[in-house]
Amino acid sequence: MTQRNADGFVGQPANAAGIDHIFSRSDDVDTAPEWLQANHASGIDREAWEDAEDKWMTTTG
C-alpha cells in the first residue's frame, strides 16, 4: 500500500489493490500474486508488482 502513489507501472496495480476491498492489507506478500491472478493482471502489472515488492523488501529488511 505504500506504493499507491508511485508513478507509472508500480503505482497502477498498487492503486487497484488499494481500492479493492477484498485485497488483504496484511504484510503477507504471498497474497499479491494470488490477487493479481484472480484479477487477470497483465504481465506488465505482475512485473510492476514484483518491482514494488522488491523495493518493499529492501526497506523492511
Rank of each mutant, 00 (worst) to 15 (best):
T59C: 08
D27M: 12
A32V: 04
G8K: 09
M1T: 13
G18E: 01
W35K: 05
S24P: 01
T2W: 10
V10Q: 03
N15G: 13
M57Y: 15
Q3K: 10
S42P: 05
E34Y: 12
A16T: 01
Q3E: 15
T60P: 01
V10C: 03
Q3D: 15
D54S: 11
E34G: 14
D51K: 15
A14T: 09
A48T: 03
N5A: 13
S24F: 00
P33C: 01
G11I: 06
N39K: 10
Q12S: 12
R25W: 07
Q37C: 03
F9G: 07
M1L: 14
T31W: 10
P33Q: 03
T58S: 15
T59H: 08
F9E: 05
D28K: 03
A38C: 04
T58G: 10
W35M: 01
F9L: 09
R25V: 04
F23A: 14
T58K: 13
V29I: 05
T59I: 15
P13F: 11
P13V: 00
D7I: 14
D30G: 02
D30P: 00
A38P: 03
M57H: 13
A32I: 04
M57A: 13
D27L: 09
E50S: 06
G18P: 00
G61N: 12
E34Q: 13
P33K: 02
I44K: 11
W49F: 14
I22L: 14
S24R: 02
N15C: 10
M57E: 05
G11K: 13
E34N: 10
A38R: 14
D7M: 05
D30K: 11
D54T: 11
G43Q: 12
H21P: 09
W35A: 13
V10T: 03
R4Q: 09
I22R: 05
H40C: 01
T2E: 13
A16V: 01
I22Y: 12
Q3N: 15
H40G: 02
A14F: 08
R46N: 04
R46F: 04
E47S: 15
D7E: 14
G8V: 11
A32W: 07
D27F: 05
G18Y: 06
H40D: 04
D54F: 15
F23C: 09
H40L: 00
M1F: 14
F23S: 06
G11W: 04
Q3G: 11
D7H: 03
G43A: 15
F23W: 09
W56R: 14
V29C: 07
S24Y: 13
A17Q: 01
T31Q: 02
D27E: 05
N39Y: 06
S24L: 11
T31I: 04
D45K: 13
Q12G: 03
Q37E: 06
H40T: 00
A14N: 10
Q12D: 01
W56G: 08
H40I: 00
I22E: 00
P13N: 06
I44C: 06
G11S: 05
D54C: 06
H40F: 10
G11M: 14
A14D: 02
D45R: 02
N15F: 11
A17C: 08
T31D: 09
Q12E: 07
A32C: 08
A16G: 00
D27P: 02
